[in-house]
Design a protein around this nucleic acid. Structure first.
Lengths: 196, 196, 196, 196
DNA sequence: TATGAATGAGATTTCATTCAT
DNA sequence: AATGAATGAAATCTCATTCAT
C-alpha cells in the first residue's frame, strides 16, 4: 500500500470513528461512512471486508493504548503523594478516553455475544485489572481477591467515563477524575481525609 | 384481553428476554422471538407494535424493581454491622441481576443515542445514585460531589455484575458480592480490616 | 406450507426455468425471476436461499425423470424390431428433453468446477450409461469397456439434443431421433441396412 | 509491441487459460487472472479490452487448430487399416484436447445465448461435421442425413473427452480413444469384430 | 509500459412490518 | 385470537472497468 492508499484508509478510519460515535455501532451504515469519507463503497471494501473489520481496526489501536497506559500505572502509596500520582494517572486515562471517545462508546454496543470484540475487551480489562491488583494486593483484606477488586475498580473507572461521555449524566472531566481518584484511593487505603 | 391472550403475551415476553440475552438487542430478530415462542409474526404484532416495545415492556419492569431495591438501601454505618447490611443489600441486588440478567445485558447494547431506553436507564441510575449519595454524604471528603461518588459506586456494582454475567470474566456470585461490599464500604469509611 | 405457498413456489420455479432458458444460468438475475413471477425479492428468499437453490430444485426433478426413463430402456435386438424399440425410447427421451429444455440447457452452463450440479449430473449420466452398457455388452468387441461405450452413446444423445435445442444447428426433432436411432443401433449391431 | 509487451500478453493469456479452467468462464475474475500473471488490472486492460476478448484470443487459436485437424481426417475404409487411421486421427484429437483442455472446458460454459463464442463454436463444429459427413456419406443408410450423423459423431467425440477431462468420469486416454474409434467405426461400417 | 487506486452500477440479501384469511 | 404469506425499502457486497501517475 502506497501513500495514497494509506491516506484513504486513514480517512475511512476517521470517518468510521465519527459515524460510530454519532449513530452507534449498529445504526452506523457503510454508506454513512463512505459519504463522510467522500469516497465510494467500492473503495471501502478495498480496505475493509466489512463494517466490523473497520471497527476492529479502531478497537485494536485503542486496546493497545489502554494496555500501554495500564503498564504506566505507578505504585500508589497511602499518603497524599500516592493519591496525587493516582490522580495524574487517571488524568491520562481521561485523556485517552476523550481522544477515543467514539470508539469506546461504540465498543459497549458492539460487545455482545461471542464476537471478537468481546474477547479483545476482555484482554484489555484483564490486563488492567492485573496491574491494579498488584497495587491493591498490598492493602486488601484477606478475604477478597485482589484481581476481582482490581476489576471492580477498573469497571468503575471505565463506566463513569462512559456515562460522562454519552452525556447520560453531566459531570465535568475534573469532577470525574477527582471523584475516581478519591474513591479509588479510599477504597484501597481507607478514607483518611477529614470528615465534615 | 382474556386468559389466552395474556398467556400468549407472556410467552412472547419470555421468548424475547431469552433471545435478547442470547443475541443482543440488535441481532435479535422478530423471527427468532416468534419461533422461540412457537407463534407467528402476525401474533407478535397483535401484542406489540414493534420490537422496541417488547423490549421496553421488559425494561420497565426491571427498572421499577431496581428503583424499589434502591429505596430499600439501609443506612450504612462504619462498623461491621454496617458492612453486613451493605452486603445483604448487594446480595439482593445480585438476586435481581440474576433474575433479569437477560434484559440487563441487552439494555447496555440498546442504550445508545437518544432512544427512550437511555432515558429510562438514566432515571434508574440517577435514582440509585441519589440514594447511595445520601449514605456517602456523611463521610465523603469535602472536595468531591457525593452524587458523583454515588454514581461511581453504582457504576462499579452494575458493571461487575455485567462482566460476571456475560462470562467475560469468571467470578462467582459470592466473590462478586463480597468484593463489592468490601470495596464499597472501604471507599466510604476507610479500610479498617487488618492488613496482611 | 399451504396451498398458497405451494402456488407461489411453483410460480417461482416456472419463472426461474424460463429465465434460465432465455438468459442462461449466469446471466439470469434474481430480479428477472421475481419480475417474471410477479412477486417480490422478499418472497423469493422466503422459498429459496439463493438462485442456485432454485436451480437445484429444477435440476433434481429433471434428474429423476432422466433416471426413470433410463430404467425404461427396453432390451435392444439386432433386428428391425429392436431398432424400432430404440427409436421409440429415443422419442421419449426427446419428449423429456423438450419438456425440460430450459433446465437442461442451463445445466451445461452451471456445471463447472466442483458444484453439486456436476455431481448430480454425474449420477444421472453414470446411471444412464450403466443401463446402456447392459444393452451394449452383448455385442461389444472384447477390447472396449461397455460402460465407456455406453457413456459415449449417452454423450452423443444428450449433446445432439443440446445442439438442436440451443439452435446452434438446425435439425428437426424427427431428424435428431432418426439419426440417433440409426447411428446408435449401427454402433451396437453393425450397419445392416443396404448401402447406396 | 516490443518483446516485453509480447511477453506480458503471453503471461496474461496463460494465466487466463489456467484460471478459466479452474473456475470456469463466469466465475473467473479479472483479479484472479492478473494475480496469477503477477501483473496489474491496468496492464490487463492495456492488452485486452475486456475479459471476453482474452477468452476469444484463446478460443480462436483452438478453433483454428480443430479446423486444421478436421481437414487432416483421412478417408476411412471398412477394413482394419481404416479403423487404425481413424484411431490415429482420434489420437491426435486427444492430443489437441489435452493441450487445450482449459479453454475447451470453459468454452462449454461460455457458449450460451447469442455470444460470439457460440458462433465461433458453431463454425468449428459445422466444419468438423462436414468433414466427417463426407466419410459417413459413403456408407450411411438412405434415410439419415450424413451431416447430422457426422454432427452426432463429433458431439460424441467432444463430450467424451469433456467428461474425461473434467474428471466427472474416470477414463484413461487410451480407453477414450479406443472406445471412440471402435464405436465410430462400427457406426459407419458395422460391427465386424467377432462377438463374444 | 506498468500499476495501484478508485469507481459505481448493479447484484444479492435481510428483515421489520403489513396483509388476507 | 391466530397465522402463514407477502412485501419492499434498505442494507451489504462484488467486480469489470477507468483513472492518474
Amino acid at each position: 500500500m502506497r501513500a495514497r492508499g494509506r491516506q484513504t484508509m486513514r480517512t475511512l478510519l476517521d470517518a468510521g470513528a465519527e459515524v460510530f460515535a454519532e449513530r452507534g455501532y449498529h445504526a452506523a451504515r457503510v454508506d454513512d461512512i463512505v459519504t463522510r469519507a467522500e469516497t465510494s463503497h467500492g473503495t471501502f471494501y478495498l480496505y475493509f471486508s466489512n463494517k466490523e473489520e473497520l471497527f476492529r481496526a479502531l478497537a485494536v489501536d485503542v486496546a493497545a493504548a489502554i494496555v500501554e497506559l495500564g503498564e504506566a500505572l505507578p505504585p500508589i502509596t497511602a499518603d497524599g503523594a500516592g493519591e496525587q500520582r493516582l490522580r495524574d494517572w487517571l488524568d491520562r486515562f481521561a485523556d485517552l478516553y476523550e481522544r477515543n471517545r467514539s470508539t469506546l462508546q461504540a465498543w459497549t454496543e458492539a460487545e455482545i455475544g461471542d464476537s471478537e470484540f468481546g474477547r479483545l475487551g476482555d484482554d484489555v480489562f484483564a490486563e488492567l485489572s492485573r496491574v491494579v491488583a498488584t497495587r491493591v494486593r498490598a492493602s486488601a483484606p484477606d478475604d477478597i481477591d485482589p484481581v476481582t477488586a482490581g476489576l471492580a475498580v477498573v469497571a468503575m473507572i471505565e463506566r463513569l467515563h462512559y456515562y460522562a461521555a454519552t452525556g447520560q449524566v453531566r459531570i465535568s472531566r475534573e469532577e470525574t477524575v477527582g471523584t475516581l481518584a478519591s474513591v479509588t484511593h479510599d477504597a484501597i487505603f481507607g478514607n483518611t481525609t477529614p470528615r465534615r
